[in-house]
Amino acid sequence: MSAVGVSSVPIGSIYVPRADVPVAELPALLLPAYGETVLMVGVVMVVVLAVGTPLGLLLHNVAPGGLFERPALHAVLGWLISVGRSLPFLILMASIVPFTRFITGTNIGIAAAVVPMSLAGIAFFTRIVENALRSVPPSIVRVARASGGSNLQIMRSAQFGEAVPAVLGGLTIQVIAMIEYSAIAGTIGAGGIGYVAVTYGYQRFDNTVMLATILILVATVAFVQVAGDRLVRWVTPQKRLQRA
């Protein structure tokens, strides 16, 4: 039986060996995908910064001891953000498809990926901002109040101003997390480098593409980390000046 089986079934019908994408064609495949990833992460980061920063400031200041305490609002906000943070991204993405469709009119492609990525990213970044603000000594806020600052002025110059290095450090982590989310979003056809890795590298066993996407992602994450570290150093006078 085994002998018959082996001889009668051509190997090719079970496993068709395919040629990997030739190296020379990799740029044509990967560059547009990379562009899509950058676009996706870029759009998401703009939304996340625009919404997450004020939300983090709000969350910090409605908390007990904040500039305008609102315990009920703090509880509701905190709970919402925790829910957003606790869902694995894949599940969040799937569960809000109707919402995504309502916003963008579609549930596939880059536009559709931006919605769940922004929601998850806002929850993530709000916590990062809140955490950074918590590290600002309360005495600084007292000084700002005693100097006659309005709440808005105090939040801008004293709270956020002092927290900038910590926020940028968190932002670095956030960008890297968003690159990861964009790869997951690739599974709903969002495009991008993650999508190429899944369709070519994983589903078609194309080791060349897989290796190339891995290299690109590692290099990208390394670049973001180095850039983030530089930025943090540059906005921290002590680190900036003592290095020289």
């Binding site: 000594p137 600084i140 007292r142 000084v143 109040r145 005693a146 100097s147 006659g148 002092e162």
Partner: peptide, 21 residues
Amino acid sequence: LRAARRRIGTVFQSASLLSRR
């Protein structure tokens, strides 16, 4: 009250300066 605070200058313990200014 905020305007009134400006009539009283406060020197705090250990200055509490903004570190990035």
